[in-house]
């Protein structure tokens, strides 16, 4: 396959960025998108005219949430339920022009090229994304509280969020509601998490707002682009949790 790539290049957070065009030839359809960028980078390095394209990646099996990239206007590219590292070139056609940008949001400042700073997500988790139990191991037996399978499954589905930020990048408001609601839901559905659920949702939402994420207007783009298929229902659940908490306090 022969491809034309238009890639966002930006030296660091203080400098201005621009789109640059690269030609790629002999791309194998079995390559992953990141492996295609690897090939481009080795070409750039051997030519020695500029720095290789910086991008985040680590596990390359769709679970660590490190890779990002906004490809042809879609977070993680055209395929569904995958991260960029699992997107394969067979999803493109010979002669395609592919536009690659970083995940854009005020709360995700660009570090270099396609690398953005997503530490705002960590800070939201630090505000309440936990159960306040010590790690001494002196808790009760794991099977002492049965949990309805349905609730356990729903909690698990919410917990599969990988914190990649595709929801934020896809949202016209750059809202982090899907990310935050996934964590809130995971705990709200389990007896262990219920104890402090009231405070948790208030704290996490406050931190989310402080970080500069936008609000939710129920467009649903986040759910469509989420590589783990996190459901919009979690946002509804968070809203009801939030409402209940403000009414009670």
């Amino acid at each position: 396959m022969n491809l034309t790539l238009k890639i966002w290049r930006q030296r660091n957070s203080n400098s201005k960025g621009e789109m640059k065009t690269y030609k790629m030839s002999n791309v194998s359809p079995d390559m992953s998108f990141l492996e295609m960028i690897d090939v481009l980078n080795s070409k750039i390095i051997s030519e020695g005219k500029e720095d290789p394209v910086a991008f985040d990646h680590d596990c390359r099996e769709g679970i660590c949430g490190m890779c990002s990239m906004f490809i042809n206007g879609q977070a993680h590219g055209p395929d569904r339920l995958v991260t960029t590292c699992q997107l394969h070139m067979r999803k493109f056609k010979d002669g395609d022009t592919i536009v690659v940008e970083p995940f854009r949001a005020n709360a995700f400042p660009v570090i270099k090229d396609l690398v953005v700073d997503r530490s705002a997500f960590d800070r939201i988790q630090q505000a309440g994304g936990f159960v306040s139990v010590n790690t001494s191991g002196n808790t009760q037996d794991a099977n002492s509280i049965p949990i309805e399978k349905n609730d356990a499954d729903k909690s698990f589905d919410a917990a599969t969020c990988i914190g990649c930020g595709a929801c934020v990048a896809s949202c016209k408001n750059a809202s982090a509601m899907l990310f935050v609601s996934a964590k809130v839901s995971q705990y709200a559905l389990l007896p262990q998490g219920k104890v402090e659920s009231k405070q948790r949702v208030l704290n996490m939402v406050k931190q989310m707002d402080d970080e500069g994420f936008g609000n939710c207007t129920n467009t649903g783009a986040c759910e469509v682009e989420c590589p783990k298929g996190i459901s919009l229902k979690n946002i509804a659940r968070m809203n009801s949790e939030y409402m209940a908490s403000t009414l009670k306090s």
């Binding site: 936990f130 139990v133 009760q140 049965p146 949990i147 917990a159 262990q192």
Partner: peptide, 16 residues
């Protein structure tokens, strides 16, 4: 025990 107390959603059977 520790992980369940932390809210780790392990797989469960129909009896919970």
């Amino acid at each position: 025990d520790q992980c369940v107390a932390q809210g780790v959603p392990f797989a469960r059977d129909y009896g919970g």
